[in-house]
Amino acid sequence: MKYEAVVEVLLKDGVSDPEGVAILDAVVSLGYGSVSKVASGKLFRLLLQAEDENSAADVVSEIAERLLSNPVLEDFRVRDLVSSNS
């Protein structure tokens, strides 16, 4: 089966996020004073072959843990794992 997974990687709380801060400055200067935080992160879309949804989820988690994120700085979340026709 073919699956598509989206992996979201965000910096842990307290990790320096100058991109988020710069975007927040821009958001506030556009007049959206109600916004108090912007966190920047990364999003990866993976297409893969797997026996079933569980093994697809296992492989994607393993890749996210070994390569896509650094556990000292970042948290990851596998989301939107769906079978794919593409």
Binding site: L11, S16, D17, P18, E19, V21, A22, N70, V72
Partner: peptide, 17 residues
């Protein structure tokens, strides 16, 4: 070296922009 686990910790973005 930190990514490879030969040294502990990590280098994050500089404080400030």
């Amino acid at each position: 070296l930190t990514e490879a686990g030969l040294l502990p910790g990590a280098l994050q973005k500089n404080s400030g922009l």
